[in-house]
Design a protein around this nucleic acid. Structure first.
Lengths: 350, 350
DNA sequence: TGCCGCCAAGATAGCGTTATCTTATGCGCT
DNA sequence: AGCGCATAAGATAACGCTATCTTGGCGGCA
């Protein structure tokens, strides 16, 4: 017998008197009149349990408001019901839309969503991956393809399904859901050229890998045109904001008075530029055309309405989560890369 | 001995061959040359461990990239390192700011943040609380004061610290961080009266408890004025959006042509109204004054700039998280209610 | 010099589940 | 009618950590 603890009147074990007060599987099983393992099987719906017993277990569970202890479950089964999602920023509306879609897919399936913010730093991402791996998640969703080698090998070693969001990889077997950032930049360039613009600029704040890709796509198309000079490239390290967009707009036009078309790396900057232009009575698109990226809700309502690239950010979250679920269930026949495309929404600002 | 498993060459136990590949505390302890329990104590910094042993343990942990298994830790200690945060909506920018501030306080302390979205439904909130309680969190952050009785008693029975955000309760001992929604509505009313407006309206979408409070505060102040009639109250069930704000603005002015001041329950609606007014050449504030709520980043940049109530949403998150940490550490001498106030930012739209 | 108390380190036994093995039960087949 | 096999339920032993109890060693005091 245990060296301590004669079974007291309360039947308590030696260990802190079950402070939680929640029923255990053993109690549930006793009430349902079955063994704990049968109760466990019944609740999980695994293996074949007599339908009558299963019903009794479910009824007892409902009566007791029984909820399994996830820690015990994870420890015993060597995997949790969590999915880790790493995003580079919480303050960027863009990722919130994605996050919400992910939630909507995963939570109804009883999966917990662990959110990590790596602030655009691959090193921080690595640290987060290391930590989340300790939770033995069922799957991981990552944003972008800029992982450190250590992150990649950690993930590979873990054997846990991973889906990459927002970019498309040419690497074989990498499950990714997104669209071509490079192509979207190219599309903007073609649009501005078609509108007769010849002196173009790319403006970005806190250049992340995807914004860079877009800028490169923009550049590529312009480089192919004989009578068009390469775009002015203005990029600052501060975080993006509406106010900053206005500032950069002014700074750019002062430095390069002949600019007649600007591609901002996101809508926040572009909106700020339009507000500032309105204030200074710079005609848009008369004097200069403005194009944003993301198509935030407000962009369609401004004056002038903002031309932008509509990104499928909610769809990315949904498709990535669905793919992850499929992988978790061992169902991975589908094409690894899912290209959700983008749409250039032409409005008054260009 | 165990009925199965002669200790094989790999030293493996019978159970699935340690698929995770991560080192256990026992391995770490062996390498550091101490007992597992000493390693555990050294890493947690509890009890007194010889500094030399502690150093050896830490070095071994670093060398192995050891990360403790949270499930085992939770199971053994009867509490996790998680904090549950329940918010009514993920798509509302407002709560994102709060959430980010919470993250910034809790994650550096090694606390995991579990996010639950209860979609403004107390029943769903109850379900989430029940589920999250199973995780044995160290603390819980709730939004608003509209819990079901069952939720309240679950929380009380759990003994886990709870902090309520966004509203102030007069209930004794309830830790809450926020500001007076009712007062903020009253402040808007006083502002519009001071500007000479006499025919006022309150416009809301998807009226949540806090928006209702604001409307009531608005009403209260107007009711106290002899020569002012009660405000027109326009409230629709659809979710709030910029486009809806424009629609409601038009609908309101058509039905009540003498309205000269509108308090929108949030900035999204107010922004939509201003855009629509600009489009229809309705002078603002000449024809009608517009006031929003939340002071979203864009409101300061529009034309006309939007008068709004600046809410301390990030500060609420930060203060609530800090208070929760204090409670978790048994330090609860402070005043339970923290009023962070609000600020009426007067701009061109009123 | 001997006894006691105190403190650091270790031994032990779970925490509440589930994986695995074992046992009982029944059924088809020869 | 007997045998083996499939199936369902239970017994057992972990999962990896920490709470608790136990032990050993040391210093202080009489």
């Amino acid at each position: 017998m245990s060296p301590r603890s004669s079974d007291g009147p309360s039947g308590g074990s030696s260990r802190g008197s079950r402070a939680s007060g929640r029923p255990t599987l053993a109690e549930l099983a006793r009430i349902a009149g079955v063994s704990p393992i049968t109760a466990s099987r019944a609740l999980r719906g695994v293996a074949s349990v007599d339908p009558d017993l299963a019903r009794r277990v479910r009824e007892a569970a409902a009566a007791l408001n029984y909820v399994a202890n996830p820690a015990a479950r994870t420890l015993a089964s060597a995997h949790s019901d969590a999915v880790a999602v790493l995003i580079p920023s919480l303050s960027n509306l863009l990722f919130i839309d994605t996050l919400e879609a992910i939630h909507d897919v995963l939570m109804p399936r009883g999966l917990e969503v662990l959110i990590g913010n790596f602030h655009y730093s691959p090193e921080e991402e690595e640290k987060l991956v290391r930590n989340y791996l300790a939770y033995q998640p069922r799957g991981i969703l990552l944003t972008g393809l800029e992982q450190t080698p250590a992150t990649r090998s950690l993930l590979k070693a873990s054997g846990i399904p991973v889906v990459y969001m927002m970019e498309l990889s040419r690497e074989a077997g990498l499950h990714c859901v997104g669209f071509s950032q490079e192509e979207s930049g190219a599309a903007v360039a073609r649009h501005l050229l078609a509108r007769g613009r010849r002196h173009l600029a790319y403006v970005a704040a806190q250049l992340d890998p995807r914004a860079l890709e877009r800028g490169l796509g923009f550049q590529r198309v312009l480089a192919a045109e004989r009578e068009v000079r390469p775009p002015v490239w203005l990029s600052v390290p501060e975080p993006s904001s509406v106010a900053l967009g206005g500032e950069l707009f002014v700074r750019l036009l002062e430095a390069y008075p002949d600019i007649d078309g600007i591609f901002f790396c996101n809508d926040d900057l572009a909106q700020g530029a339009i507000f500032e232009a309105t204030r200074r009575q710079v005609p848009i698109p008369g004097r200069v055309a403005v194009v944003g990226f993301n198509d935030l809700p407000l962009s369609a309502h401004m004056a002038p309405r903002l031309t932008s690239i509509r990104t499928p950010r909610a769809k990315v979250g949904e498709a990535a989560a669905r793919r992850l679920v499929a992988l978790m269930e061992g169902d991975c026949r589908a094409e690894p890369a899912i290209d959700l495309g983008f749409e250039l929404v032409e409005r008054e600002s260009s």
